[in-house]
Amino acid sequence: METSVGVGLGEIAVSQNCEEILVAFGLGSCVGIGAYDPVKGIAGLLHAVLPEPLNGSDLSSTKYVGNGINKLFEEMISKGAVKERLIIRIAGGANMLTSPGLSKTFDIGTRNIAMTLKVLETQRMKIVSQNVGGSTGRTFRIYVADGKMTIRMIGEKETVF
């Protein structure tokens, strides 16, 4: 009997429980970073909100991509995961506002993706697959049982990526 574990804004969830599914619902401009150690069967999901701190507040918060990724890896490693084995997939980072008349395009989504790629590259971590960009929200799921990761958009079926 599977149980969903919701991962809200700025949150991280790490699990070895085969019956759990880690879920980040409705990622708009937010980016979901999923990691899985296939040997130990440890899954982790980060729901990052912003590329970097706006005005010096909450500097250590995991809602920022960099902090979040570091904390995600830290927690998974503390449970026995090996960083080099981690299978990483990312999803989200949509630009939700694209209509004419909005003088500045809302580009947080793009900036979140860029920061994610930069941070992971700095740590020499390879991204196996990604479902990012566009202008639609996504729900990101990680099945702890086998590390399967899926996304679902409104009106569409859940698909593995």
Binding site: L9, F25, G26, L27, G28, S29, C30, V49, L50, L54, N55, S57, A94, M96, L97, S99, P100, G101, L102, S103, F106, I108, T136, G137, R138, T139, I154
Partner: peptide, 22 residues
């Protein structure tokens, strides 16, 4: 600005306000 009408998942829509204004 001219309003934008969006249809999407609730959480994704709220990202707009949350991310911009933090």
């Amino acid at each position: 600005t001219p309003p934008a009408v969006m249809v999407d998942m609730c959480a994704a829509i709220l990202d707009i306000v949350i991310a911009t204004a933090g």
